[in-house]
Each structure stands twice: as structure tokens, then as C-alpha cells.
């Protein structure tokens, strides 16, 4: 009984450690474009505002892109499954563009960046729970060449 309580407590704590508000802050699904350069940023429900952590990630991406000037990228915008399909397509596009705009303010030319939205069509985590949804609300920077 006590053991199971402790286990539950641990599980809850783990979830909390991976989310701030409802924005994912963990690293489970994150891949790296280069050492220390995470490929994705996460969003709050229905939001496309970049968090402090997201801006930090994108500055690192911008720096990496400046150093690797021949590399172009695709920003893939995604939404979680708790919205209507069409609205989520628009939301994914808005999220990817929020990331694109930020990269551009750090000197990356628009013609090196293309954007695609997958809406809720390509989740990384198939769970139906707040943590899974937080991992799925994302913009992922993918090398295009």
C-alpha cells in the first residue's frame, strides 16, 4: 500500500518535472541537429507563443544554421489531438511560422526555411494524456538537404 502510494507520487512528480504549465520541458522525444542543438520547441495548448526555453533553443539553431550556411531546413508544425482537424492544421502552420520568424530575427534568410503543418496528423506520442499532448504540440526543425 505504502509502496504503491510512493510510486504514484513519483510518477506524478516525473510528469510535473517534464511540464511547466502545460508546455513540455522534457527531452524524451527531442533529437539533436548538432551537439547541444535541440531540434524542437514546444507550445502551450492553443498557443503559438514561444517560451523562454523555446527562444533559447531557436537561438542555438540559428547559430548552427549561420555556421552551416548550406543547410536548409523545414519547420514542421504540429498540434495535439484535442482540437478539430482543420483548425489544428492552421495552428500547426502558425506554430512553425512563429519558429521561422524567430530564426529570421537571428539572421537566417527566409529562403533557407520552409514550413509545413501536419496539424494533429503526426503525433510523436500516441497517448491520450496531458503529457503526451504536450510532446505533440511542437515545431520541429528538420534538415532539408
Amino acid at each position: 500500500m505504502l509502496a504503491s502510494l510512493i510510486l504514484t507520487a513519483c510518477a506524478t512528480k516525473k510528469v510535473q518535472n517534464q511540464m511547466q504549465g502545460d508546455v513540455y520541458t522534457g527531452t524524451d522525444t527531442v533529437k539533436y541537429l548538432a551537439s547541444g542543438v535541440a531540434d524542437r520547441v514546444f507550445f502551450a495548448t492553443n498557443e503559438s507563443v514561444l517560451t523562454t526555453a523555446s527562444r533559447d533553443t531557436l537561438r542555438k539553431q540559428a547559430e548552427w544554421l549561420r555556421k552551416n550556411s548550406k543547410i536548409n531546413v523545414v519547420l514542421e508544425g504540429h498540434a495535439d489531438e484535442r482540437g478539430t482537424r482543420e483548425y489544428n492544421l492552421a495552428l500547426g502552420e502558425r506554430r512553425a511560422n512563429a519558429a521561422k520568424d524567430y530564426l529570421m530575427t537571428y539572421g537566417i534568410s527566409a529562403n533557407r526555411i520552409s514550413v509545413i503543418s501536419y496539424g494533429k496528423e503526426r503525433p510523436v506520442d500516441s497517448g491520450s494524456n496531458p503529457l503526451a499532448w504536450s510532446k505533440n504540440r511542437r515545431s520541429v526543425t528538420v534538415k532539408a538537404n
Binding site: 503559438s48 482543420e86 492552421a90 502558425r94 512553425a96 511560422n97 512563429a98 503543418s117
Partner: peptide, 9 residues
């Protein structure tokens, strides 16, 4: 239909 451009649909 909708057309999305620069984060706006």
C-alpha cells in the same frame, strides 16, 4: 477553402 501563409489562415 483556407490558405495559410506566414502563420495566418
Amino acid at each position: 477553402m483556407s490558405f495559410a501563409m506566414d502563420g495566418n489562415s
